[in-house]
Design a protein around this nucleic acid. Structure first.
Lengths: 340, 340
DNA sequence: CGATTTAACGAAAACGTTTTCGATTCATAC
DNA sequence: GTATGAATCGAAAACGTTTTCGTTAAATCG
């Protein structure tokens, strides 16, 4: 039941531990004959190298960390899947931690991962994160770090993002083109770059199309939940009876809003058109189906790992690192929550 | 930039490595004064124990593995969240791998995890898994293993499940009570215990309520996807024009069916009542909202980790292990896809 | 005061690899 | 015959902890 070690193989073959080790790694200074012999007994005894010892010796664990704000979330699930898929191909395992949108937790998780000595970290920031010392510290300690989706522009590392501003512009423009004149915006919290960029895209689209920007039409949400969608849909109707379109920061919120509008008899899209963001699966299933921006989570995960992998490799070979920002394409998915 | 080691602390304080180590772990044979001194310099130099060395020495990694069939999945996401939450509290990290419902992949992932020497493994089986040698091998090697949701009764280990049979019985009975006479069933593949039990619950409910069981009303699905829901909804109408209720193995499929019925003008629940299974978030949002069985994913994750943790602990202390099966409560969520 | 206990520390082995550097043998070259 | 080189192998250090077992000095006891 005990685990087989190199030493045992060496003893059965009357060899030294070093030769056995070298035989397994195809060193040139061990004869073909003993290589064959070693490999045979390895099979026979079902030897598996002790990962702990290998880690200690090679100073790497072939494991990376992933920190996301929330696991039960269509977009992040897709990202996770992409990361795991790509990582596995390269022989890496991934440890997943959740920040719960809390800066404090995020810091703690980062600490945990670096003390576990993962080879690199992938992170999507919590909404509350405004201070970036914890991230810069990691970079200073030369631990490869790649940010995705919810990033901080100011932190100097590789990133993979979408063009939130452009996508929001497209979404808003689509509302305008379909005839909307008074367009509201449900935005995310003040901090994350995402929320800011999507808001700016919305604002620009209005201005560039001769619609005056009215700050009272912009609602700042906190946790971007379904319930908030319900709540602010009601609130909006109370505040403004002339709104005919909403660009909403996230599908989940949009779905809350649609449900509320359905409930109280406001017709979507006849009375109010709605565009969401992210293209959650749910959006193609709600009635009316939701026009939205497709955000490629799976690809984002794959791309993020690819960047991290490159950095890990170059770091190992002591080559200079050049940080890169990859921007992924989004596209407008036209459905039934908007007029055409 | 280099990592601080015990040796460096020892040298700065003119102590030996052993005393420093013991000071940090509050051994009784080191004076309060030096303990204080050591802890101060540890703070000062920002010493973090080298996890690789600790692992090698203690023969444990404080890491567990998790294998699930699919990451982008409401139920499994919830399980993941529960596991991570509970594991973190006990100082464990979790590595997530995906089997993609493939037996071969499942075997490979299990191998990966055990060669990484995780302290324990949590697994929900792939649909294709009929042979359990890979699982029994792990148990033989005394690697703690807990199965959840999609389990194999025959494998001797701890498990956490729901009573699929009872839940399916409840669901079907509810259809009967609401007046349905011809009730179809969309079931999962032949293998997983889940599918079998839910099918048996369905069948029993019919028989016990004087409705003859008609095998032609049972449709065997393969991948339990939205598209299959759409497809079999259409197929069912072609095959039987007298069906007035369906008990569907999974919400995602049920939602596909509802969408299809909506599209072709079959009224739910007036023409056909539908009950799903799992209570995905989506189910409360589709129109009509879906009556379903709530399956507590988050709790299942927490419970599964708790069992695993106990086993890891007892194994470490060389105490006898008694395998346990925890059964979690489900409940019927009555919504608009059924008559009342 | 000698014997024994107690307190505080250090030496060293061990965990299982990887890799450098010699050491040995044997063939080849001059 | 000596010198050079290739071909094989092994010894040993190193990675950074943890823990056992001594060792020393001071304190306690009869």
């Amino acid at each position: 039941m005990k685990q087989v070690t190199l030493k045992q193989i060496a003893e059965t073959l009357n060899l030294s531990v070093s030769t056995v080790s070298k035989a397994l790694k195809d060193y040139p200074d061990v004869s073909k004959k003993t290589k064959r012999l070693v490999k045979e007994t390895v099979e026979l005894l079902n030897y598996k190298p002790n990962a702990f010892a290998v880690n200690l010796r090679t100073k790497e664990s072939k494991t990376i960390g992933l920190i996301i704000p929330e696991v039960v979330h269509h977009f992040f699930s897709s990202v996770i899947k992409g990361i795991i898929a790509k990582a596995e191909k390269k022989g890496y395992l991934v440890i997943i931690l959740q920040s719960n949108e809390s800066y404090e937790l995020e810091k703690k998780q980062l600490d945990l991962l670096s003390s576990k000595r993962v080879d690199g970290i992938l992170i999507s920031l919590a909404n509350g994160t405004a201070d970036f010392k914890h991230l810069n510290d990691l970079i200073l300690h030369e631990l490869p770090l790649v940010m995705f989706d919810k990033i901080a522009k100011i932190v100097n590392c590789s990133k993979v993002i979408i063009n939130d501003r452009k996508a929001a512009y497209t979404a808003t423009k689509y509302l305008i083109d379909s005839g909307c004149k008074r367009i509201a915006h449900f935005r995310g919290p003040l901090l994350p770059q995402n929320s800011i960029d999507r808001f700016l895209g919305y604002k620009n689209a209005l201005i560039e199309h001769g619609i005056s920007y009215d700050p009272s039409l912009v609602y700042i949400l906190k946790d971007m939940s379904y319930d908030e969608g319900v709540h602010f849909a009601g609130q909006l109707l109370k505040d403004h009876n002339d709104v005919d379109g909403i660009f909403i920061n996230t599908d989940l919120v949009a779905i809350g809003a649609i449900t509320e509008f359905n409930r109280i008899g406001v017709k979507v899209p006849e009375d109010i058109s709605i565009v969401g963001f992210s293209n959650w699966f749910m959006s193609s299933v709600i009635s009316p189906t939701l026009t939205t921006i497709d955000q490629p989570g799976y690809e984002m995960g794959k791309e993020a790992f690819k960047l991290l992998y490159k950095e890990i490799k170059r770091r190992k070979e002591n080559l200079p690192i050049k940080f890169k920002t990859v921007e992924l394409e989004t596209k407008l998915i036209k459905r039934a929550s908007t007029r055409n």
